[in-house]
Amino acid sequence: MTTETDQFLKSVDSSERGPRVTGVAISDEVMLETKDVNVYYGDHHALHDTSLAFHKDEITALIGPSGCGKSTFLRSLNLMNREIKGCRVTGEILYDGHNINTKTENLYELRKSIGMVFQQPNPFHKSIRENITFAPKRHGVRDKAVLDQMVEESLRGAALWDEVKDKLDKSAFALSGGQQQRLCIARTLAMKPDVILFDEPCSALDPISTLAIEDLMLSLAKDRAIIIVTHNMEQASRVSNRTAFFYMGDMVEYGETEQIFQRPKDKRLNDYLTGMFS
């Protein structure tokens, strides 16, 4: 590893990072669960009967070739698919003991608890501070002291505080790509989510920034469930406890990450891992 990364790793608050075990399951406590989830775009049946459970303190990776349905599935978990015209999601999504895939679910509150980080860093055209306080303000937080504390906590949580603490009122667009992505993570942390969904968060970043984000994810998994969609299989094996493999709209195989990568049962997964297709 480069010295830059070493420096970065040191800067991550070690108490939050803690020793992480990856590759195997470490928890039984389910935070989010799906039962027979199907997704349709108009007439196109994009995802078939997917049932998965996501555990507290764990990172779950969703892998598979492009168009396999993994991102579609991820977007169902915080009901973001409802924002796409013509998209329909059926089946049960259980969070906090009840099905959230209902008409009456308050999806605005729900999305505070289930945060999401996107493929492209997408900060707002606002200052770094406003990027973090924007949503909390709209959710009713008015107290300036509370907001200031929130900014610092979230930025520390995203390992960005030391780099930006002197320029909080500068535009977020002045940051590098990796910093922007960490700002987006900080923005999500400000909502104090129980679950964070990562949709290929590193695909637009350079290798050093990628490692920084991976390390960050490991530190964030404490008391949370983290779900990451990724194309990068090394990444999946580095950070995750469990892995699900999607292919052509089916969830083909699910298990502990070590088992999935070293002893795949399904032929399609084996072919994918050995690079027969990607």
Partner: peptide, 15 residues
């Protein structure tokens, strides 16, 4: 306006 801006807002529970 890039749709990622809209997604970011909606994903944080904004209308």
């Amino acid at each position: 306006v890039p749709s990622s801006q809209r997604d970011a807002c909606l994903a944080m529970g904004l209308t």
